[in-house]
Amino acid sequence: MEINMKYLTRRQPTNGRQLWGDFDSFFNAPPPFLPSFFDWNNDVYRPAIDLFEDEASYIVHAEVPGFDRKEITVELEKDRLILKGLRKLNDDDESSEVSFHRSVTLPDAIKSDKVNAKYENGVLTVTIPKAEALKPVQIEVKS
């Protein structure tokens, strides 16, 4: 996402109750429906992550709106999936950044060379095929 240089104020989180200064009178927002789930902390935030499975794969969804595809990295360290993102925000006279780092330990053996990741509408989807289960082997009983 492009951050336009001409905007003068720093990007700050808002949940509708925390409008500041003269903005209050200008832009009187209704109270939020839900309690703020925003854990703003030193420009690090914690994207929501879901883990699913079907017969063949584990699927991870991460909601990381505003990141460009190129700002996201997906790594697999044995059975641990690591999702990272770093986005630089250029303000007029100072730069800041937003980053996230989350990992998911997958419950069972996987095929690490067949992992697929895509990013669409702010949602990262990673599909990790499960390792093929050992098929039962029939052993002939000899007389």
Binding site: A48, I49, D50, L51, F52, E53, D54, H61, E63
Partner: peptide
Amino acid sequence: NWKVLHRESK
């Protein structure tokens, strides 16, 4: 056929 193992999203 997807089974939810962990869910944080709304």
